[in-house]
Design a protein around this nucleic acid. Structure first.
Length: 477
RNA sequence: CGGGGCAUAGCGCAGUUUGGUAGCGCGCACGGUUCGGGUCCGUGAGGUCUGCGGUUCAAAUCCGCAUGCCCCGACCA
């Protein structure tokens, strides 16, 4: 068999670039660092969008839309925020042929303009909490870009909430982290580690940042969603004030949280194999593909009739596609749909029709072992069951892989070895500077301080001081 | 921004060293053959060789400048 795809073990990075394009997820655009999300990739994003949006609504949030352009001065109102984002801003200076009085930045994120609006909208504690999300594009002028993982323009959702009390805002921040974790595990089948960001890794302007960190198949970490407790930083910068029950002026407490099209990259790099994508059934644009098989013309009529009937039947309860392309062999189609990561394939030929059965092939188990013959009568039960099995199975596989590549280490030598293949979990009491030195020496950073802690005390891996928490280090995307 | 590589048909490349009618594979179109794991045969369409300037009888090829993209490093969802 010819090589259609660079094997993962040979060059994971190349594998990724190739599969994203070959599976029709995205293509490069004429503008450097930007991508075109193709229909198949966009449908996957739509599935992510739907599942997240459902969870946001369930937790009391509503959607709105804020403008793409932000007055440049807004960015300057929060000191850390401007420092963090200045290097990567795209700025519009000309409009309608005239130099603008004040340049407009293309939003890199919307805390500032939303802060400005919230200040207008919030007068009383009765106006709180404000629980708004927006689905939008944002622009960050990145040095190096990669399809889905880091592009100049990307799609995301950003939730922005304002609360009357500190505790309520903290609860919101953690609630949304839980929502992300739930989504990642139960929809994307990605076993993420929820945790807190270190000082140097936190969002520009946040008091505390939380993250869900995932391990990709090359052992590197991908930050797949973030939730920030912003304290009163933005409230003070934008004057979001309200009168409380005692008729006293208070600053609001705000949060923000986001998941981006990077999630698509996470799905690709968590489950994909040398055959191509492996999509979790719950997110897959196509869950089942029917490949008809015939030899002679009379068989063709018979098979296509049966295939069309089957398609009409399945359409009611799964996302199904009938591959009726002519001129390509069934074997070619198998490979083609495997590359696109379709979880389940139905092979339907004369032999099956005769026996009133179909051949079911699982994407997550390659070759003959993944094939079973099932009676056509039970497909309403068999297919959803099989999809659920696949979903559970790829989650388990990803979790086993991750667990096998997280090591608890106590010496710096072990640490260095551990981060060559995955994550290192260590006792940590170091400073921002210690973290920077480790990054220089090993390229690894604190991915997160997991919410789930072992308790007790230990010796800090770097400083040798007494430490009360463990941190997870890894090389990051 | 530093280092490296590349730019020739939709895609992947050869041709550039040594200047002389622009080629191969895949894909695409048409016809036939095939179809239970990437069929086979035939016919055909498709190129201002990234751009600008120079050398020359003659430039994809030599020289200069520019631009774009990819990979590796510092910043980042």
């Amino acid at each position: 068999m010819a090589e259609f795809l660079t094997p993962q073990h040979e060059d994971f990075s190349k594998w990724y670039t190739e599969i994203v394009q070959k599976a029709d997820l995205a293509d490069y655009s004429p503008v450097r660092g930007c991508m075109v999300i193709k229909p198949y990739g966009y449908t996957l994003w739509e599935r992510i969008h739907e599942e997240l949006d459902r969870r946001f609504k369930d937790t009391g949030h509503v959607n709105a839309y804020f403008p793409l352009f932000i007055p440049e001065s807004f960015l300057h109102k929060e000191a850390e925020h401007v420092e963090g984002f200045s290097p990567e801003l795209a700025v519009v200076t000309i409009g309608g042929g005239n130099q603008l009085e004040e340049p407009l930045v293309v939003r890199p994120t919307s805390e500032t303009i939303i802060g400005h609006m919230y200040a207008k909208w919030v007068q009383s504690y009765r106006d709180l909490p404000l629980l708004i999300n927006q689905w939008a594009n944002v622009v960050r002028w990145e040095m190096r870009t990669r399809l889905f993982l880091r592009t100049t323009e990307f799609l995301w959702q950003e939730g922005h909430t304002a609360h009357a009390t500190r505790q309520e805002a903290i609860d919101e921040t953690l609630q949304m982290l839980n929502v992300y974790t739930d989504f990642a595990v139960n929809e994307a089948a990605i076993p993420v580690i929820p945790g807190r960001k270190s000082e140097s890794e936190k969002f520009a302007g946040a008091v505390t940042s939380y993250t869900i960190e995932a391990m990709m198949k090359d052992g590197k970490a991908l930050q797949s969603g973030t939730s920030h407790f912003l304290g009163q930083n933005f409230a003070k910068a934008f004057d979001i004030k309200f009168l409380d029950e005692n008729n006293e002026q208070q600053f609001a407490w705000t949060t923000s949280w986001g998941v981006s099209t990077r999630m698509v990259g996470a799905v690709v790099m968590t489950h994909g194999d040398d055959q191509g994508l492996v999509l979790p059934p719950r997110l897959a644009p196509i869950q089942v593909v029917i490949v008809p098989i015939w030899r002679k013309d009379d068989q063709r009529t018979e098979v296509m009739e049966a295939a069309n009937k089957l398609y009409a039947r399945l359409k009611g309860f799964v996302r199904v596609k009938l591959d009726d392309r002519e001129g390509v062999s069934p074997g070619w189609k198998y490979n083609d749909w495997e590359m696109r990561g379709v979880p389940l394939r139905i092979e339907l030929g004369p032999r099956d029709i005769e026996k009133q059965s179909v051949m079911l092939a699982r994407r997550d188990i390659p070759g003959r072992e993944g094939k079973t013959i099932v009676p056509m009568a039970n497909l309403e039960e068999t297919i959803p069951e099989m999809l659920a099995t696949i979903q559970a199975s790829i989650l388990q596989k990803a979790q086993d892989y991750r667990d096998a590549n997280i090591q608890d280490v106590t010496t710096y030598a072990e640490f260095k070895a551990a981060i060559e293949q995955g994550f290192a979990r260590v006792w940590w009491a170091g400073s921002r500077e210690d973290e920077a030195r480790i990054k220089d020496e090993t390229k690894a950073t604190i991915r997160c301080i997991p919410l789930e802690q072992p308790g007790g005390k230990g010796r800090c891996i770097y400083t040798g001081q007494e430490a009360t928490e463990v941190a997870i280090f890894g090389k990051a995307y």
